[in-house]
Nucleic acid binder design. Sequence first.
DNA 1: GCCAACGTTGGC
DNA 2: GCCAACGTTGGC
Length: 154
Amino acid sequence: MAYWLMKSEPDVFGIDHLAERPDQIEPWDGVRNYQARNMMRDQMRPGDGVLFYHSNCTLPGVVGIAEIATQSRPDPTAFDPEAKYFDPKSDPDNPRWYLVDVRYVRHLKRTITLAELKEHSADLLKDMPLVRKGNRLSIMPVTPEQWNFILSLE
DNA sequence: GCCAACGTTGGC
DNA sequence: GCCAACGTTGGC
């Protein structure tokens, strides 16, 4: 079982939206970055743990825990000309983009802020892309050590 | 294959 | 709203 961190903008789709979904599950569509795609397509497995991160907001940070609910499958929004993330270069016979379903587990008791996590960017979290300047990766692997450490801050 | 231009992310 | 950092695109 592996661990991940997944970013989302709370104004668009935050942890509260996930918790309020029927079955508390949501397809993680719209990812259009190859590194992030490869992780979803090739490495994520049902049951993997997810740190749910809020980005582009007043208090960026880890706000909850989710889990991977399904194996990856092609992202249908890439084939839909009406969809925001339509990609004419993605062919149903040879899909370019993939998604997994994400299931809500729980809110954290408080937000573990990016500022707090950055305090550990020289030691415990030094290999985590999240705490590096200019990082834009929306999905990243988390080691068991990082997972345990971050949640110990709760 | 190089690289400038462009668009997006996301903290602040 | 600003802007640094970065990924992608497309001309050559």
